[in-house]
Design a protein around this nucleic acid. Structure first.
Lengths: 350, 350
DNA sequence: GGCTACATTTGGATCGTTCCAATGCAGATG
DNA sequence: CATCTGCATTGGAACGATCCAAATGTAGCC
């Protein structure tokens, strides 16, 4: 770290104490609203605090009390609106509880994740909310944060399961149920040839969604053709490029459950280029309900995950853990909600 | 703030010193990589640090050295992808410089902004990067952060100009030049009847963009009709609703410079509903280059503001300020870049 | 041996706060 | 008058690091 010129002297407890002829201890009691101090004294001290423009030094207090007033929030990709909303929700709830958020973004790099965790730890957060980078390993994360640190995992599991990290709490989306709901919805719309489009099978969220799709297909007695599972990068461009693979063999699907909204929007682009009108000639569902989903042409049927609410929930869970460090580890599965729009129109006879 | 159970005892300098028979001071020197220590001693100490799983307590060090290793980042709306990208850029650069980011989001509320600033200040950040909430006043912000705190203002000016806050640095987008470039581009495409669509005149960024548009129109010797200036909320829905106002009188415009991308996308929606094909029958430009702009139908001509790069730049500016507190206040106007896509097609004769 | 020169190490004070045991003092009680 | 109670206040030792002046050891030189 660069060296900086020393800061100008700040007003401290001692200055206030000297300023109104009491001891440091008394001023400290006033600051913490203790009922022990005489109200006359309190008024004098409070006046002096204002007069000198005192600002509380929480770091010093934390040092003495061996407490913390911050929580680290480590996000794999802050540029993604889903995670940005999540971060906003976390910060909102932590702020209300008197904690400050230490931010770290990792850009999906496990090396950066290690570096960020190491740096944040030194600032002594009370706990960590971690949305892991892709490929992040339990053992390396554990060695960076230490065995005592309260951790809440969001959105993804870590690779390699260690018994030592079993005590970490988890907040996951109900990926499987969401995909099942989307699939059931398409079936109810009359579709029988339904693809699962986009994402990579080795991503945990993708394989969960795929499992939900399969579950619904089986339950309805439908079988899947091999070419109905198309893997892509979870981006719009790549999804658009892979659209044609759905139609390279018979029977062609008439609908697709997509890994997420980005992929679904990409697929709709690809369909349009083939001359198919999404929502009319071919039904599409997404996952996430990003802002854009409501405004695409046609508006996209998708699963709302309420990232901001999830952020608030994550903060609540971690705060609960701090209150009771001995409680059993919890795994919370957040519900997702099917939002039906026009992209998932009913099957039309050819 | 809630009270929490006290943390388990942590490994300190003293433990390490005792563990390998040297003094605290020596261990401290090792930690800071001082050349004064004998390499044999250093090796022994480093071994002990690993063995005991020592983590550096930066708060304690900062207290003693009267320095800071954190920067507060206060964002008006973190859910907005533009600001999320900005935050990611800030965090990236601060992290590389050894600083940690204290996050605060205000949700465009000036009361929350005050509360957030007050809370962050107590953690002793070395400086603040502030993207003000709408309607934020210089005097209240100043009283929350104090006169000594280095502040970098991003994106918006504060209301009410105080001489005392003139020393704050600024990073603003080149709104005027951007809108001028967009307008000039439409003129070069042969358009003569060009509207300025969306936003409210009392927003500083909007009035700057409008001024740029007017500048280009004047320079080209073109006059504007009154109904070519349509004000809307800066959202897609509202923009779509106001589309028809452009055509309520003669001469109708053949192109529009829009306040931002959201508005431009909404306008394109409205045009389509009128039976006009954007990019073919009517040219449209946006502002911001949000992710969606590249994928809309047709892809949107817009001005790239590179929010992540702006974040990095903001962090650099603040770090420079910390290095030299006496330097004159700077105002940086970040360039914007015209990205020509298909929404701004040439004028076709009727 | 006594001297300086150099490399290494160290005790103790300090940063701004909180904790704790102790103090002073008023009035009540025996 | 001595003792007790309860209230309000206080000095001094922490918390975990850094700074500084001083101490230690070791080698070289006359």
């Amino acid at each position: 770290m660069e060296s900086l010129p020393p800061a100008r002297r700040k007003v401290t407890l001692t200055d206030i104490a000297a300023g109104c002829g009491v001891s440091r201890a008394t001023v400290s009691l006033v600051l913490r609203g203790s009922p022990l101090v005489n109200k006359h004294t309190r008024a004098r001290v409070e006046e002096e605090l204002r007069r000198q423009g005192y600002v509380y030094n929480r770091a010093a207090a934390n040092l003495r009390r061996r407490t913390s007033s911050s929580i680290a929030l480590v996000i794999n990709e802050l540029g993604n609106p889903f995670f940005a909303e999540f971060a906003a929700g976390v910060d909102e709830t932590l702020g209300a509880a008197g904690f400050v958020t230490l931010l770290g973004s990792t850009s999906e790099s496990t090396e950066r994740e290690q570096a960020v965790l190491g740096s944040l730890i030194e600032h002594g957060p009370g706990g960590i909310i971690l949305s892991p980078a892709e490929g992040s390993e339990a053992s390396t994360v554990l060695s960076a944060v230490g065995p005592q640190m309260p951790v809440l995992l969001f959105n993804r599991e870590l690779g390699g399961s260690l018994p030592e990290y079993a005590h970490w709490d988890r907040l996951m989306l109900d990926n499987q149920r969401g995909a099942r709901m989307a699939t059931e919805h398409l079936i109810a719309q009359g579709h029988r040839h339904i693809a699962f489009f986009g994402g990579h099978n080795d991503s945990s969220s993708c394989s969960q969604r795929y499992a939900g799709y399969q579950q619904a297909m089986h339950a309805a007695g439908l079988s899947e053709a091999a070419h109905w599972r198309v893997q892509t990068a979870p981006t719009r461009v790549d999804a658009a490029h892979h659209c044609n693979e759905l139609f390279r063999a018979d029977p062609a699907p008439t609908a697709a459950v997509c890994y997420n909204d980005a992929v679904a929007l990409g697929l709709m682009l690809g369909l349009a280029q083939r001359g198919l009108q999404p929502g009319h000639d071919f039904a599409v569902t997404g996952f996430d309900d990003i802002a854009e989903a409501a405004f695409s042409m046609p508006p996209l049927t998708t699963l709302a995950t309420s990232p901001r609410a999830r952020g608030r929930q994550a903060a609540q869970l971690l705060l609960a853990r701090l209150r009771d460090p001995q409680a059993d580890a919890s795994t919370t599965t957040a519900p997702v909600q099917l939002v039906v729009r026009e992209s998932s129109g009913p099957l039309r006879s050819p």
